[in-house]
């Protein structure tokens, strides 16, 4: 099993910070050291000793069975949950400072749109909070609406949109203020397979255009392979990193990528890693 346990940064993908010879961890997009999370209720250990480093411009998926703590890990990076032990540095800052600096664009499993706001106003919400003036907001919203191909729907309210369209609004909103880090928690989990594959392609296109760092939580092996530059496989109870797999499929990826032999090899590799570790954890 090549690639297992590897933490090398990927070649060619990172946009890179102008770090002028600073240490590796200062340039890292996210550095997690000894992250442990124990929930007071029942004393469950959701995460145990997680050490991970993400480079700028990487697309990293966290995959694992339910209860492996992948969503909790994402929420700790985003400073929505406090770790019991360990530290997270985001671009050299604490996660808390990074949140206050609006470094995070978050997308959840549900689109979480604000029903009383139109599509345009949902996308503009983070911009309003960041104090952008109206004309700048209008320009950016127009740009984002075009990016996620929702032109003509600016004045619609969330309930007038399909699930896939709602998710595109959520993605546009998360990207609108150019966050350094895009945190996505199973964003396509609730969508049908066809919509999901289409949005996978769109997300890759957007990622390649925006060059942001993405942390993507998913249940789906094929989705993880298709999207990522690196996949972190997690095992449950307690949540641990079972292995890291480099996804060396070339960019840009297209619908044809899903038919390449290497794509199936990588999917098989992930599947075995997931199965092996899960079986081991059951004993």
């Amino acid at each position: 099993m090549s690639g297992v346990g590897s933490t090398e940064p990927p070649k060619s993908v990172g946009a890179g910070f102008a770090d002028g010879g600073a240490g590796k961890s200062a340039a890292a997009a996210v550095t997690m050291t000894g992250l442990t999370k124990t929930f007071a209720k029942g004393g469950t250990t959701a995460l145990q000793e997680i050490d991970l480093e993400l480079q700028p411009g990487e697309f990293v998926s966290l995959i694992g069975p339910s209860g492996c703590g992948k969503s909790t890990l994402l929420r700790i990076i985003g400073d929505l949950v406090e770790p019991t032990r360990g530290t997270v540095l985001v671009g050299g800052k604490s996660a808390h400072q990074a949140r206050l600096d609006r470094d995070y664009g978050m997308v959840f499993q549900e689109a979480v749109l604000y029903d009383w706001r139109t599509v345009a106003k949902n996308i503009a919400l983070p911009l309003e909070l960041a104090g952008w003036d109206r004309s700048r907001r209008t320009d950016r919203v127009k740009e984002m609406v075009e990016l996620v191909e929702l032109a003509g729907f600016e004045g619609h309210h969330p309930w007038q949109l399909s699930g896939g369209m709602q998710m595109r609004v959520a993605i546009a909103r998360a990207l609108s203020f150019d966050p350094k880090l895009l945190l996505m928690d199973e964003p396509f989990g609730a969508l049908d397979e066809m919509t999901r594959e289409r949005l996978n392609l769109e997300l890759l296109r957007i990622w390649e255009a925006s060059r942001s760092t993405v942390v993507f939580v998913t249940h789906s092996i094929t989705e993880a392979v298709f999207l990522s530059t690196r996949v972190v496989v997690m095992s449950p109870r307690p949540g641990r990193v079972a292995g890291v797999v480099e996804i060396d499929l070339p960019h840009p990826r297209t619908a044809d990528t899903r038919e390449e032999p290497r794509y199936f090899e990588l999917a098989t590799q992930l599947r075995e890693l997931l199965r092996g570790r899960t079986a081991e954890a059951v004993h």
Binding site: D79, R99, D101, F108, V112, L183
Partner: peptide, 19 residues
């Protein structure tokens, strides 16, 4: 989740109430 999202935008309590 609507509150979490607001927090991720560094919104304070007053903004969460208002918006």
């Amino acid at each position: 989740a609507q509150i979490e999202l607001m927090r991720s935008y560094a919104a304070g309590n007053v903004q969460i109430f208002r918006r």
